[in-house]
Amino acid sequence: MKFLSYVLLLLSISFSAVGEESEPAKVWLERLSSALNKLNFSTSFVVVKNNQAQPYHWFHGVDESGKELEILSLLNGPRRDILRKGNVVSYIEPELPPYSVTSQQISGPIPAILAGDISQLENIYDFISVGRSRVLGRPAQLIRIEAKNNHRYAYWLWLDQQSSMLLKLSIVTKQGQQLEQIQFTHLEITDKPSESVLQLNETELPVLVDIPEEYQQQELQWDVNWLPEGFTKINANRHKISLTKQPVEFMLLSDGLVDISIYVNSSQEKQRNADFVMDGATLVLNQVNDGIEVSVVGKIPSKTAKAIADAITIKPPQKP
């Protein structure tokens, strides 16, 4: 009798454990998305990369009319604030005068897709529920977003068991090396939006920049013959790089989670071998081939970036 009860006890424990573990990772990510959109939270986190830590404050709230209010500010160095009021996002940065754009999401260190529709990623990434650990003093569920092919990095997310909020995020290579980490250091979830967030409603945001669609969809003088599966063209334009005043033909690609920029311009140099730097997980690769300078920027492995850079072909001139 005693033996039987032990067996039953063991069985029940193992079943309950399996029951919780096997909860699909996608459900966790959907809960995260809804938490990021609906909760009133005040958090702090640090971005750890290149042996440096950048501290941020992040406030989010939903006011009585159901409008989302959000503030993300970098705490060290020159002021970098991102404000969001509904679908207007304002960037306050040292390089440019403050401006606003129409957008549903702020573009910060945390991938915007996590607050969006995660099912967009299903074709290219696998969602894996790995196990539990303790993060920020809370029980957390580890979810991995792993690319189905070798051309990308993996994203590991630690989510709060209780609120499904993000507690930690790591960008990891296929070999398991951590390139960039976001560690939350404080999380406060409240019933009502905090004062600092509500103040946004009274604040007047900077002027809205209206970018005509034609500008972002220009015909470029080159083409890229190979891209990792899942990347599509978002924008194509001609502009000058603000710091070097170098005119470039530019293309922005995205797979929903990762953004890649490709820059093409003519160079005074005839040939220069590929060289790259890494800023955390963000890679900047630059090479000159036959007087054409190609640069690839994005959170991708160097092999992928090199393959993209090599796949650039110049279109034969159509008009003299």
Binding site: Y91, E95, T102, I234, I241, L243, T244, S261
Partner: peptide
């Protein structure tokens, strides 16, 4: 170094402007 730095900041800038069309 200067080139890399300029590219990196332009990349981040373009993502901010690009999110408009993503939406």
């Amino acid at each position: 170094q200067r080139r890399f730095h300029a590219l990196l900041s332009d990349h981040q800038q373009q993502i901010k402007l690009g999110s408009l069309t993503v939406d």
